[in-house]
């Protein structure tokens, strides 16, 4: 564990609390992509299957359980409690275009051709692109509530911080995880456009609006 990874994980935690806060205070999940949230459940469940057979640390296990539980809870809130506030007609990204290629990639790129390792690779690739339905929705509506942008920023910062973590680990431990690093760089790259608008508008006190 190093500073960058800890900060990244905390940012990930923060993003989930911001999202829950947004849903609870506005009593609405408007502007949140159900598809992206469902993909996160798939990501966490497939990656954290190792809870059953690998123990890393208490921190690691607690975080894994938290991510699975909170992502399922968010899905529940969107699907049942605040269902009328979710508009599927603007959440139209075709997730099969993500699931299919990620699955094929995981068959090709994995550290061992075993059930759990293939699922692990799949979850890494899927996480990299899971935000696309959300960004697509943002693009369609052209604007977002400020709190939603804070959620997305925290989520983007989380993976961005994993990059210095990997550089640090390379120099201190000689450790390189090419699958996670490649996917992580792609994942962070997807946020660049968003980050640009976030830093130049939202953090200057303006509303998040995309140019028409």
């Amino acid at each position: 564990m190093n500073f960058f990874r800890l900060l990244g994980d905390l940012s990930h935690l923060a993003s989930i609390f911001i999202l829950l806060h947004k849903i609870q205070t506005t009593r609405s999940c408007r502007g949140i992509s159900f598809k992206t949230q469902a993909l996160y459940v798939a990501v966490f469940v497939t990656r954290y299957l190792d809870l059953f057979f690998r123990y890393v640390s208490l921190y690691n296990s607690v975080m894994k359980l938290f991510f699975i539980a909170s992502s399922c809870y968010i899905l529940y809130l969107m699907k049942y409690k605040y269902r009328p506030t979710h508009d599927p007609s603007i959440d139209t990204f075709r997730i099969e275009y993500l699931l299919g290629p990620c699955f094929v990639l995981s068959l090709i790129f994995n550290y061992k051709f075993s059930f759990s390792e293939i699922l692990w690779s799949f979850s890494i690739f899927l996480e990299a692109v899971a935000i696309l339905p959300q960004l697509f929705m943002l693009q369609r509506t052209g604007e977002a509530e400020t709190i939603t942008t804070h959620y997305l920023a925290a989520l983007g910062v989380y993976r961005a911080l994993y990059i210095p973590n990997w550089i640090y680990r390379y120099f201190t431990e000689g450790l390189v995880d090419p699958i996670a690093v490649t996917a992580g760089i792609v994942q962070t790259g997807l946020y660049l456009d968003f980050f640009y608008v976030y830093f130049t508008k939202v953090l200057q006190g303006q509303k998040f609006e995309l140019p028409a």
């Binding site: 690691n60 550290y111 390792e117 692990w120 450790l175 995880d177 090419p178 699958i179």
Partner: peptide, 10 residues
């Protein structure tokens, strides 16, 4: 030395 499938990250 390089053990990529450690999976100790979240």
């Amino acid at each position: 030395q390089v053990s990529p499938s450690n999976h100790d990250e979240l």
